Simulated assay, not measured.
Amino acid sequence: MWVFNPNNKVQLSNSVSGASRSIKSTECRILRLLLDNEDLVVRKDVLVAETWGDRVVSDSSLTQAIAQLRLALGDSGKEQKIIKTLPKEGYQLISGSVCFDACYLEKNIETKCDNAAEPCAVSDSSVSIQPEGGSQQMFPAMKKVAVKVLALTVFFVSTLTFLWAGSIYMQSQAATKRPWSIEISEGTTFYIEGSHASEMLYQELAGQIISSISRVFISKNHEQFYVACEFNSQRHQDRQILNLTFTINYTADEIRKHINESCR
């Protein structure tokens, strides 16, 4: 059984196989909603609303997120042993396949208890009429709190901006130092970013990609593989491009299997 804690950096772990998986925030929201409604059908519109909020996304965004989630759980659209698709309705998480981490459940229960107790914290006997000057004395304290909150907000925004700019710079530097190579295998053109890991992944994928995929782009940073495939869609009857992300925990066989399932 997979143990799920959305607050951890590695959100999924399997005590039996020893495997661990990191998933994106969108996939975390979907899995949490499915697990909250275990063995029940969760409609697609509910999943989209709870996952992306007011953002306008296509049906393929949900389909891709479910496919990535299945891959992380060792499931597939063909087997559906963990996440079941109900056509024109939604998705259902099969009971006994995933459970919340005990620490996550304990923390959320404590939070709910604390929130529930707040309205009862002041009894009728403790209510008293404050003098007119009392409200005036509150404003300086509130002002101090507001100033501290604003200062912290500015600090965090500045820090995030600095880290983002640094990340963009490092990526641009890496891109200039890593030339791309082009290889053709069984009619599929591979564009490979010049790193040893990308070359190794290409060796595993060459000759194993379905014929509908015309081009594959492979790159990698220190934590993830980025794969983009251009293919002739059987569903839409036109050429499509799909971007996929895989953490380093995935095997080459799992990546190949997911590419062939998604890019068709």
Rank of each mutant, 00 (worst) to 15 (best):
E79N: 09
K81E: 07
I82Q: 02
K84I: 10
T85D: 06
T85R: 06
P87C: 00
P87D: 06
P87F: 01
G90T: 03
G90K: 07
Y91A: 01
Q92S: 03
S95T: 06
S95Q: 09
S95I: 05
S95L: 05
S97L: 04
S97E: 07
S97N: 07
V98N: 02
A102S: 12
C103L: 11
L105N: 10
I109T: 14
I109D: 08
E110S: 13
D114N: 13
N115V: 01
N115H: 06
A116W: 02
A116N: 05
A117L: 11
P119G: 00
C120H: 07
A121Q: 08
A121I: 13
A121N: 02
A121D: 01
V122I: 15
V122D: 03
S123G: 10
S123P: 00
D124H: 06
D124N: 05
S126W: 15
V127H: 10
S128T: 13
S128L: 08
I129T: 14
Q130S: 12
P131S: 09
G133E: 08
G133I: 10
G133R: 04
G134Q: 05
S135P: 00
S135Q: 04
S135A: 14
Q136E: 05
Q136P: 00
M138D: 00
F139N: 10
F139Y: 09
A141V: 11
M142G: 03
K143D: 05
V145A: 10
A146L: 13
V147S: 11
K148N: 12
V149Q: 11
V149Y: 11
L150Y: 12
L150K: 14
A151F: 04
V154S: 11
F155S: 08
F155A: 11
F156S: 02
V157W: 06
S158N: 07
T159H: 11
L160C: 10
T161M: 12
L163E: 09
W164M: 10
W164Q: 13
A165E: 04
A165C: 09
G166C: 09
S167A: 11
I168C: 07
Y169N: 03
M170Y: 13
Q171Y: 15
Q173T: 07
A174D: 07
A174W: 12
T176N: 11
R178A: 15
R178C: 10
P179S: 08
P179Y: 08
W180L: 08
S181Y: 01
S181G: 14
S181L: 00
I182W: 02
I184K: 15
I184C: 06
S185M: 06
S185Y: 00
S185D: 05
G187F: 02
T188S: 09
T189K: 15
T189R: 14
T189I: 15
F190H: 04
Y191C: 03
I192K: 00
